[in-house]
Design a binder for these strands. Structure first.
Lengths: 342, 342
DNA sequence: GTTAGCACTCTATTAAGGTGAGTGCTAATT
DNA sequence: AATTAGCACTCACCTTAATAGAGTGCTAAC
């Protein structure tokens, strides 16, 4: 079922043209605009074949053709020329600013803003998944008579510092002892494993180690659980209004509502598949509500491990080549910035 | 220029009806629906007067009347009956959950969500203004050979913990000394004042105190500056699609774009005026872009000081009575929860 | 295998006519 | 003097019809 060169050429032209114009592409204008060296009639014949094979479709009988999800897929896999056109210098310059953020959070927020700015779509940045990151250090310290501060530092630069009450009889020295013990046991371990162990047999061992520890444990455990909330940074949500496919109010609404459901969004982005870069087109998305969108996702790394994702979401009629280019550059630059920092 | 009772009654009926129906209100339907005891013709005469005085207006010649911003203002100030209808038990129950959040951030996020849920408008919660909160404690601690952690705790429960590099020759003991010194100097002081002092003469004193301190100062200073970003939690942004006044795509777009500009939003909300509760109707808003919206804002407190705001934004045709009721309840409950916690 | 020609299809746009809610004004009524 | 009934008038909105235009599929010629 491989297509001959001419069909490929025609499909490529249709997709390109439609990505640019958002109007169904007719045989006549195609032949004129792209100098394919064949007449509209011939193109019509080929189009009929392409339609039968499911790569393009007609909005209605007397309209031009529009790429189907399958058509975009073929385009992305085989026809697209990744143009390194996105202004490299500009991206590079702006990304330099990443280094000036001390807080990972702000850095991610800024990354997201840049992504939407460079692509004109909506961007999503997923912060490092807490549960998978490894403990670097636990600190416990009294703040005053009633409260203590726990600081969890992970290898992904994530810091969590819940405050909670402790009985006054627990001294600073004792807290330090407990912290030492916990560090000895847990440093280097993924948080989710720590959570499991805390719930399991280790609990007893800890309570044997220090009698006062049982008053701190539930709070620590709770704090760990709370860390599961994964940060998600959106930017350019209103860019959707630039695209005619969302000029229907209910379409725009559905899209924006989708974006509000952080749980769903993060599932879409972390869906397995793909390597360094993942492209999910229309109905390929695992969630029904995202069937009118395409999502391009790049991962970013720390310690040679994937810890989070940069993502661009927009209409299936997306300028894939450009988005891929930008995402590729941004993720590289971000990896570098993270490496320098942590 | 005070209106007679009948005019008041008619204006009240018009506003009520329009808030409910979003349709221009005609004299005939008004007379029927509200049993005012006067004929449509009389109402028409009164309406003509009310229009001349600027309390109502006509979308076009042969349409009913719609309240103007001035009309809403009169309604809010004198005619509105605050109905304690919002289900008190329901709000109370759900708000109970506020207590279970350790992190202020999550608590505010949840508050925002509840607000939009109870009102069906968009809600905005402004986190305590960092610069105005007072320092409760500074902690400095080494994390490893290269990095240290600074923890700022404020009276508003806000914690900031920037990590930065320090020269290895600075020992833990020395860090502790510095921290002690800083605490002694700054505890109880608003952050903005600390910032100023750090930039001023105190800088020299600090550097006299400990020779190594100059290597930490710029970073600490930078960290303080970064704390200025005020947290802003939005919820229910897509509720705007429920209102016919925003069924025009460009209107909806403008509204959502406005919400994306956090700087502008926080200005709108913190604009002075009003006491415990502030209502800003349409053109009363200081920002041109918000002239089609009304904003109702309640403040919340810590240590008997206003530290942040709860806000609801929606069309000028807003159910003010209900929103005020909900905001009032929520802010009380929140104040209580904060008091218990900090 | 390719292309010109042609009838046909379907959407989008515009114009025209009809409907109904609501008004302002005048004259009659209370 | 205030209120109300009556009536002509206005204007948005809806429906219908007519028209233009882009594009197709099919057939026959090249």
């Amino acid at each position: 079922m491989t297509l001959n060169d001419r069909k490929m050429m025609i499909l490529q032209a249709i997709v390109k043209d439609y990505i640019e114009s958002a109007e169904p592409v007719g045989s006549r204008s195609l032949s004129k605009k792209y100098n394919l060296g064949i007449s509209p009639a011939t193109i019509r014949n080929e189009m009929a074949d392409l339609e039968e094979l499911g790569f393009i479709k007609q909005p209605h009988t007397s309209a031009g053709r529009v790429p189907s999800d399958k058509g975009y897929r073929l385009y992305v896999d085989q026809l697209m020329e990744i143009k390194r056109t996105a202004d490299k210098t500009r991206i590079h310059l702006k990304t330099e600013l990443l280094r000036q953020y001390n807080e990972l959070e702000q850095m991610l927020q800024y990354t997201s803003k840049l992504l939407s700015e460079f692509t004109n779509y909506t961007s999503i940045v997923l912060a490092p998944q807490v549960k998978k990151s490894r403990l670097k250090e636990i600190k416990l310290a009294r703040i005053d008579e009633e409260n203590m501060l726990a600081v969890f530092v992970t290898n992904t630069g994530l810091i969590q510092n819940p405050i909670f009450r402790v009985p006054p009889e627990l001294s600073s020295d004792e807290l330090e002892k407990i912290a030492n013990f916990l560090n000895q046991k847990f440093v280097g371990m993924p948080l989710e494993e720590i959570e499991n162990r805390l719930a399991g047999t280790l609990k007893e061992e800890l309570e044997r180690f220090h009698s006062a520890v049982h008053s701190v444990m539930p709070e620590l455990f709770h704090a760990l659980e709370q860390m599961s909330d994964m940060g998600l940074y959106l930017s350019g949500t209103t860019n959707i209004f630039n695209f005619p496919e969302f000029s229907d109010l209910s379409k725009a609404r559905d899209f924006l509502t989708l974006l509000e459901e952080k749980q769903v969004i993060s599932q879409l982005i972390t869906d397995p598949g793909g390597g360094q870069l993942k492209i999910s087109i229309g109905s390929e998305n695992s969630i029904q509500k995202a069937h009118e969108c395409s999502i391009v996702t790049a991962s970013y790394h720390m310690d040679n491990q994937t810890v989070g994702w940069l993502s661009v979401i927009g209409p299936t009629r997306m300028d894939y080549a450009h988005v891929i280019d930008v995402l590729d550059q941004m993720s590289r630059l971000m990896n570098q910035a993270l490496k320098d920092k942590y």
